[in-house]
């Protein structure tokens, strides 16, 4: 039996909601693992790629350099890269800060916010902390993205329909109910 195609997932500047939605396919996850193996992903807690992947699912945009590095790794290892959900596609809630200079965001978060206690006035700056980008970027502004799956989050059925279609080589059918959001 030929090796199953691999799928990797990552949550960048997101809330893990899209990953919850992946898990929300419920018992179909048993069907899914008949079709694929998970590679680097929070789902199996694999930290590094073990080989070439057929599909990479990206949740969240890029708000720091760590996100960028991660996204680059995904682009290098995955045949198809899919932006999943509003944050990956448009920046989402994290991108609300894009209208403000970074310094103002830091000041509000670490100095002047109503619940902040920070007598030294320092910003958190451990060398292990990744540098924050000037603004939050959607994934397709950093690397080439092959597909976008809209939603906040995209429903489990949407993710299921897209994945199974891609993995079985059939055209993706997303009926109206799966892509309406009110």
């Amino acid at each position: 039996m030929a090796a199953k195609p691999k799928v990797a997932t990552a949550s960048l500047a997101g809330c893990f909601g899209c990953h919850m939605s992946i898990l929300d396919i419920d018992e179909r996850i048993l069907d899914l693992i008949e079709l694929i193996d998970f590679d680097k992903s929070p789902i199996d807690d694999l930290k590094e790629f073990t080989g070439r992947c057929a599909i990479g699912l990206i949740e969240g945009g890029c708000c720091n350099e760590e996100n960028v590095r991660n996204l680059i790794e995904f682009r290098k290892h995955c045949d198809l890269l899919i932006s999943v959900g509003e944050c990956a596609i448009c920046g989402g809630i994290p991108a609300l800060r894009n209208t403000l200079p970074l310094q103002e965001c830091f000041d509000e978060a670490y100095k002047h916010g109503p619940t902040v206690y920070n007598p030294s006035g320092q910003y958190p700056n451990d060398p292990d902390l990744p540098l924050i980008l000037n603004k939050v970027y959607p994934c397709h502004e950093v690397v080439k993205i092959d597909y976008h799956l809209q939603g906040c989050p995209p429903s489990a059925d949407t993710i299921w329909a897209a994945l199974t279609a891609l993995l079985t080589g059939k055209p993706v059918q997303l009926p109206y109910e799966l892509i309406k959001y009110d």
Binding site: E65, L102, L133, N134, Y137
Partner: peptide
């Protein structure tokens, strides 16, 4: 360019890039 402000605020260059 995307790292420029963050780099100033942290007072260090990127260790990744």
């Amino acid at each position: 360019a995307a790292l420029s402000q963050g780099s100033i605020l942290a007072g260090r260059a990127s260790s990744i890039f």
